[in-house]
């Protein structure tokens, strides 16, 4: 039986009618109309569906949508600071060529955001550890790690300035 569940998605309160066996991933993509979050494996192995739920990065494929009742959800669509102002991570991913096919990109950017929220000044090893659950098959990770480290440095500089 479908039930009405309310949650806050990218700052907007939403009421969604859902079946209890639907994942948060499918719900965001279908009922929510937010297709930026990707389905790469649907079993928690690839990280393409990473979103931030109540401040923590999670695989939205491994969360039942009904469990998100009352939760604060952040997805890639909510990251931009303004319509014409991408988040610094998004800027860096463009500048460093960190997105190739782009399918893993939203998940990695959300993971990177959560990582920098928790640890604003990570080492390269900490970044590698942080995104270990995000598979990228195009880049060899080199340019992704460059972009995350550069963003951290920029944000640190901006804070001390």
């Amino acid at each position: 039986m479908s039930q009405i569940v309310s949650m806050t998605i990218n700052g907007e309160e939403r009421e969604l009618a859902l079946e209890p066996y639907r994942s948060l991933l499918d719900t965001l993509r279908n009922e929510g109309g937010l297709t930026g979050t990707k389905k790469g494996c649907d079993v928690g192995d690839c990280g393409a569906c990473t979103i931030i739920m109540n401040g923590k990065p999670v695989n939205s494929c491994l969360v039942l949508a009904v469990e998100a009742a009352g939760a604060m959800i952040e997805t890639i669509e909510g990251l931009q600071l303004a319509p014409d102002k991408p988040h610094p991570l998004q800027e860096a991913f463009m500048r460093y060529g960190s997105a190739q096919c782009g399918f893993c990109t939203p998940g990695i950017i959300m993971m990177a955001k959560a990582l920098l929220d928790e640890n604003p000044n990570p080492t390269e090893d900490e970044v590698r550890f942080g995104i270990a659950g995000n598979i990228c098959r195009c880049t060899g990770y080199t340019k992704i790690i460059e972009a995350i480290l550069a963003t951290a440095a920029d944000l640190q500089r901006a804070k001390s300035a």
Partner: peptide, 9 residues
């Protein structure tokens, strides 16, 4: 155990 995303759940 898995990834950070998994360990958060």
């Amino acid at each position: 155990l898995g990834s950070i995303q998994v360990r958060n759940r």
